[in-house]
Nucleic acid binder design. Structure first.
Lengths: 161, 161
DNA sequence: ATAAATAGTTATACTTTTGTAACCAAATTC
DNA sequence: GAATTTGGTTACAAAAGTATAACTATTTAT
């Protein structure tokens, strides 16, 4: 009772399961050795550099990160003056987070640092593979970003577009 | 002094940094809630299902996992009778790991379980996006798998093909 | 034959992340 | 206007991953 579609999905899942530790290890290791940030706070920066402004809940939702953890990671980023809290005048419970100018600069430098090792490997690819890799990461990112926002948490439902 | 190639690499890195937590959270959460395995041991299974037989060092190398951690994770998999130790007659120091038949069956079931949530989301994609996602994950997997095996660890050098 | 290197295990301490529960303040509902 | 819900924080326990060093057994090198 397995049709082509199901098989395809299985392969996608398998690819993602295989892919994950590859990214995980190469990224998180250099995050720790080369920055004073946790991996978690770097992911928050990544989200903020795409979405500009996010509330605490939205961050937790988009990264499937428990709320208390978001608080802790954002605290660290604030201590580094990389993000700032913006209080929402319409709903004073909501804490919006935005990167500071310093944060944006730092993030560029950090990405450079963190990815140094990966960069050296990618640089060795020929033009065609490089293009293919670029296109493919873009597709995977866009599609997963679209479907993976966690809707299982009821508190996340409202953030779905 | 930034040429097109460099820009492209930056975007690739950015995509991967963005991608990582998306995978991480959706996979690791359900691994824990739906299986009695750690994420780490599942990654080992993923590697073994591709490479058939790997020594302890090769596993640590391919997953950039510290050796003591590999030992612990493999111990758990052995306790579950999902993998077995094979002692190398040519070099009795080497411990080779291979999935058992039970392990292969279980792994299929576990992948099914673990990815249930992701699967439901992917299923909603139209035929074209599904195909694109499949192709792209395949490309990213193949290329990263190729370049990401950790060559920084001297002990890993010999496992490079 | 002895010394050095390698593969793996054990032990331990530490960091990061996850999960819960209790809590406050603000908003909403009735 | 009292009760409930929501957004966020605090505090704490537990799980998972990482780092390091010490150790055994085996192989390689000299």
């Amino acid at each position: 009772m397995i049709d082509n579609e199901t098989v395809s999905i299985d392969r996608i899942i398998e690819n993602l399961i295989y892919l994950h530790p590859l990214l995980s290890k190469s990224l998180t290791r250099s995050i720790r050795s080369k920055t004073n940030l946790n991996p978690g706070s770097l992911y928050i920066l990544g989200m903020l550099s795409k979405h500009e402004i996010l509330s605490m809940s939205e961050i937790g939702c988009k990264l499937s990160m428990p709320k208390p953890h978001v608080t802790g990671q954002v605290d660290k980023l604030i201590a580094e003056e990389m993000v700032e809290r913006l209080f929402d005048p319409n709903d004073r419970r909501i804490v919006n987070i935005r990167m500071t100018d310093k944060g944006k600069e730092d993030f560029i430098a950090i990405k450079q640092e963190v990815s140094q090792d990966m960069r050296e490997r990618i640089e060795k690819l020929d033009e065609h593979k490089l293009k293919t890799l670029f296109d493919s990461t873009q597709v995977v990112r866009d599609i997963l970003s679209d479907i993976m926002t966690d809707s299982k948490l009821t508190t996340c439902a409202k953030f779905h577009e």
